[in-house]
Structure formats: C-alpha cells, structure tokens
Amino acid sequence: MPDFLQSRGFSRTLPLVLFALAAAIPFGLSDYDTNLVARFLAMGIVALGIVLTWGHGGILSLGQGVFFGLGGYAIAMHIKLADLAEGEIPDFMQWSGRTALPFWWEPFHSPVFALAAALVGPALVAALFAWAVFHRRVSGTYFALITQALALAFATLIISRQDVTGGFNGLTNFTSIFGFLFAGPGMASALYWITLGALALSWLGLRWLLGSRFGTVLRAARDGENRVRFLGYDPVPFKVAAFALAAMLSGLGGALFTLNAGVISPALIGVAPSIEMVVWVAIGGRTSLGGAIFGALAVNLARDAISSSFPEGWLYVMGALFILVVTLFPQGLAGLLSSRSGKRGENPA
C-alpha cells in the first residue's frame, strides 16, 4: 500500500473529503437514489453505536432493533398525530374500532416531546436494562441471548397490539413533518443533509469518546474485566453508559430512517434486522467507526442490488459474507487495511 495512505495528513483529510463528496450527492443523484442513500446513512448511525458497545466494550447486543424501533415509532407517532384534524384519531385505530386516542399517545402531539422521546427514550430503557443485567455480572453470550429475546418480544408486542401500534403494517402514509410536506420539492435533499449531519456529528462525538480515558477503561474492561475490577474500578457504570449511548444512536438512526423511508414497522426492528445491524459492523470492522459506516453502506447497497434481482438470494449472500469475514478477517475490512499498513493498537477512526 502506498505510503501516503498511512500518513497522518491523509487520515485527517480523508474524512473531510468523503464528507464533502457525500454532501454533494443530492446534486448528482435523483431524489429516489438520494433518499436511498439517506436511509443507509441512518443505518450507519446505528452501526456507530455498535462499534462503541461491541467493538470497544465487548458487549454484543442482538437487540439494537428495539432502540431503532423506539426512535422510529416516537417520530412516526408524532407525524401521524400532526396529520390529523382536531378530534380525529389515526386511520388504523379507526379500522380497529377504536374511538379514542390511547393516553400514552397524547404527549406525542408535541414535536419537542417526540424528538426527545426518540433520543432519550431508547437511552433510558437501555440504561435501566443494562444496569439490571450487568449488575448481576451477566455478560457475553448470555447477554446477547437476552437482548435477542428482547427484540423478539418487542416486535411481537407491536404486532399483537394492532389497534394502538399499527400492527404488522407499522406506521406509514406520512404527509408532513413540522409543517413541511414529505412530497414537497427539496424535501428528499433536506432530509438527506440532516441525516448526513447527524452521522458526521455522531462520528465526531464517538471519536472523541473512544480516544478519552473512558474509551481506555471500556477497552480494558473488554479485555480483562476482573483485572479492571481488582484495580479498583467498577466496570458496570462504564458499560451501562456505553450501552445507553449506543441505544441513543440507534434511536437517532431509527428516527432518521423513518423520516427518510416514510415507514416504521416490526419487520424493520425484530430479530433478523437486529442481527443484520451486527453483520454490517462485523464486515466493516468492529473497532473502527469509519469501517462500521462503510459496512452499513456497502451491505445495504448490496442488499438493494441483489434483492431486487434475486429476492430470495440475499439472506444466503449475507450469511456467506458474514461467515467469510468473521473467519478470515476478524477485524473486518478496516482490520484488513490497518494490518497491511502495520499500524499498532486500535484506531477508532
């Protein structure tokens, strides 16, 4: 590999160049394609959170779809309510024979509440859950299994309460958000830039966090939780904070995905999507923020291309890709790059 690829200047300019290129996409692509990339960028935010918990914290969650869903549903509930005339209730509620809005839908009339719920809701749920589990020193495979069960339970709950959740169809048919029409001119580009901005800010924030002493303790607890404990640290709050922040990013990704895709449904948040989120990161490189974004984009682009021509083929391709990467390149594509360049230690960028 040429030397310039490893130079400090290059590693500093590359993200800027990529960001500038990404920002130009709405000028070069159709609204349809811009919207598609925006959805994938939202997935990239979810992937960043998984780098924090799994890559640096050693906490494998197979339930990130739950937090993605909490973010997505929070914003979708607000949109459904905002589209209504005074005294009306959402269409699917009427079809199910309901006459009044459930009380817990009421606060979602407020856009501020909905936005806060999309971010704080997942973080709060994740923090409570993680605290209860980590406090009992449950980790590793057991933790992964519990989170998977959580994803299954959450999706099942939503499907079973069609009258208040929209059931299997989810929430869709959005008209406007904060007074802007989804079908309006420039809306696809605006949502794209908002998503790109959120991704960039998340990347910067995590880069800072992983480089801080917090990141060091997190990696230390991943590699030797007992050693860390017997050096006088309580690793539980570090892991809880990391897990809650990852959930918040998952919620942010879910909210932005919902805005771009115009739909949130159980099929996007259950067990299979939750595992797919981990696969993006495994392929991109679990300790690398840039790798995870790349993984989310590349896998979703491939999925889009393959599933439109061979609808049944995608799961096999993804399974094969996952096995290949995990057995041959445990540090993912990013690991492939840094091991070639002989870099030492972990590069969170």
């Binding site: 801080s212 060091t216 303790v217």
Partner: peptide, 18 residues
C-alpha cells in the same frame, strides 16, 4: 495500563477527557 492503575478518581464521568 499503568495510567489506568494510577488513576486516583475512578468514577466514570471523571474519565470523560483525554
């Protein structure tokens, strides 16, 4: 490794700097 052991304040929010 050494700095981790030497830290006098081991609370998580005190680790939020470089």
């Amino acid at each position: 490794n050494m700095a981790l052991a030497a830290r006098t304040d081991r609370r998580w929010w005190k680790a939020l700097s470089h």
